[in-house]
Simulated assay, not measured.
Amino acid sequence: MSGGLGAGVDGEPGGGLRARHVLRPHELVPGARVVLRHRRDDGSAADALGELLAADSERLVVRTRRGEVTVRRADLLAGKAVPPPPAPRAPRRSRAAPHEAVGVEELELVAAAHWRPHEVERLGGWRLRAAGGFTGRANSALALGSPGVPLHEAVAAVEAFYARRGLPARVAVPHAAGTAPDGPDAPEVARELAALGWAVDTPTLVLTAAVDDLPGPGEVPLPAGCSVVSTAEPDEQWLAGYHHRGGPAVPPAGLRVLASADAQVFARVVEDGAVVAVARGSLGAGWLGVSAVEVAPSHRRRGLARRLLAEVAGSGRAHRAVSAFLQVAAEDAGARALYEGAGFGVHHAYHYRVRPGP
């Protein structure tokens, strides 16, 4: 998942230099909820959205979600009163929601069905997966439960499976959140692979949420000049905006993985005919999966990722999905803030163990 996600205005996500507001000075009275478009010192434009605290001939002061913002009258480009924010959602029931009650192994199997590899071989509870090298999720042995044989035999089977396919041997190890991959509380398989010299790669968090708790498209405005398009397959325009780990065009093996769920939606934001952000939503077994979120570097911090998350959530509701999940690199603080701000919480974690080179 790409980093650098966040808001682009002073108060809430969704800013952009192309936005326009009707100038209505008579509405700019203290106590009103307003949006003020103003010029920054560097010449760029920004929006301040919130309660107007003060207004005189020299300045206006707005209380936004990020603190007070002072706008000089000379820098005011436009402003108007806006409706109050949506009413808060009803509090959750005290009883654990499905996305919180589901076990680690069960959720890992749900996620695997939303990102299916081309090949799967069973080794006891383990699943050896291969998909031409496109993503670690589809090209690793998912270590669930016991492999049914001694670990040294399981390791040999994993090495042979990936060697036959010209792929690096890799094992995905799920574990409780907050457990260090190399710590004393790590799963036994992680400790034993560590003793064999298998290195830790890509510590990842699995987040879940109730679909009904996620914002919908109507709650997340788009910057002016942008539009959203959704398709059931990853067409050429969507693919033009997606670069797995910064790589070039998605290979044929990747296309097959991207379209491998029971159903999916591929959403993109378009500005001036160019794709500037993309996301994938997958559907199956009552779950919505969120993946392949990417925003062009030139368009980050404008609320586009949050809007795409809302689009995908809307599709999940339309397909009667109850729960949602996603996987995010543990070190990606920006993406975590985006998702946790939308209503996701940490369920568990996993990391890969990679066989040492020859």
Rank of each mutant, 00 (worst) to 15 (best):
L326W: 09
S315N: 03
A324N: 06
S282P: 07
A342N: 11
L258N: 03
S291R: 09
Y242I: 00
E271I: 01
P297H: 12
V269N: 06
S282G: 15
S260E: 05
A305H: 06
A305T: 04
A292P: 02
E340C: 12
G273T: 07
G343W: 10
L288G: 10
G316Q: 05
E294R: 10
A305R: 13
D262P: 04
R256K: 10
V312T: 12
V278F: 07
D332V: 05
A274K: 13
R245N: 10
P252A: 15
G345V: 13
A292V: 07
Q264Y: 01
V257Y: 01
V257S: 03
L304C: 07
P297N: 12
V295I: 08
S315F: 08
L288P: 05
G281T: 07
R320L: 11
H243K: 06
V276S: 01
A274E: 06
R320Y: 04
V269I: 09
R268K: 14
Y339K: 15
A324W: 02
S282E: 01
G316C: 11
A253S: 15
D262M: 04
R300D: 02
R245S: 09
V312D: 03
V346P: 11
H244W: 09
R256Y: 00
A279L: 07
G345A: 15
A253G: 14
A261R: 08
E294S: 04
Q327C: 06
V346W: 02
G316Y: 08
V278L: 14
E294V: 05
R301H: 14
A263C: 02
A310P: 05
V276C: 04
H319W: 05
R317H: 13
A310H: 06
S298I: 00
A335S: 15
G284A: 11
P252L: 06
G314C: 07
G343V: 08
A263N: 02
V250M: 12
R280L: 12
A310M: 11
R280F: 05
G314S: 07
V293C: 11
A263V: 03
S291Q: 09
R307V: 01
H347R: 14
V276T: 03
G345T: 09
A324K: 02
H299L: 09
H319K: 12
G254R: 08
R245C: 00
R280E: 13
R256W: 01
P252M: 08
V269F: 03
H244T: 01
H299G: 05
Q327N: 09
V346N: 10
R317T: 01
A313Y: 04
A342H: 10
L255M: 06
E294N: 10
V290N: 11
Q327P: 03
P251Y: 03
A329L: 11
G314Q: 06
G254K: 13
A305P: 06
W287H: 06
A292W: 01
A249E: 14
D262T: 11
A292I: 01
G247D: 08
G303I: 08
